[in-house]
C-alpha cells in the first residue's frame, strides 16, 4: 500500500548522517515508500523549500568524476527542525501505538 509521509521530515532524516546529492536523497526516500505517488522530480521542490527556509545548504560538486551533482547538507537549524519532527513522530507513534496495541513498536520508539 502506498502511503505518503512528511516529505520535508524525510528529507531532513535522510541527511542526518551525511551530506548527499539529490539523486541519492530521492532514491532513499522512494525506497522507503514514504513518497507515496510523488514522482522523483516532485521531491526536488521540497529540497529547495528546505534550502530556502535555511534548513539545508546546497553546493554544486564538479570534481566527482561524474556529471555535476548538487550536494545537500543539514544546517544547525535543519538539525533542530529534524529533532522537532522526530519528537512529534515519537509522540504520534507512541499515542497511536498504545491504542492500536503495537507494544513492541511503542517500546522501540520510546527507547530510540
Amino acid at each position: 500500500m502506498a502511503f505518503r509521509g512528511d516529505i520535508k521530515a524525510m528529507v531532513l532524516g535522510t541527511l542526518q548522517a551525511e551530506p548527499l546529492h539529490g539523486y541519492e536523497i530521492v532514491r532513499r526516500i522512494r525506497e522507503s515508500g514514504g513518497a507515496g505517488r510523488l514522482s522523483e522530480g516532485q521531491i526536488y521542490p521540497y529540497l529547495h523549500e528546505l534550502e530556502e527556509d535555511g534548513f539545508l545548504t546546497a553546493e554544486w560538486k564538479t570534481d566527482t568524476g561524474a556529471a555535476p551533482r548538487r550536494v545537500y547538507q543539514l544546517t544547525p537549524n535543519g538539525r533542530a527542525e529534524l529533532a522537532r519532527h522526530q519528537e512529534t513522530w515519537r509522540k504520534f507513534v507512541s499515542g497511536v501505538g498504545s491504542v492500536l496495541g503495537g507494544e513492541m513498536m511503542v517500546k522501540e520508539v520510546r527507547n530510540a
Binding site: 546529492h21 539529490g22 539523486y23 522523483e40 522530480g41 526536488y44 561524474a66 556529471a67 555535476p68
Partner: peptide, 9 residues
Amino acid sequence: MEAESHLRE
C-alpha cells in the same frame, strides 16, 4: 541542471 544530473545518473 539538477534534473539533468538526476536523470543521467
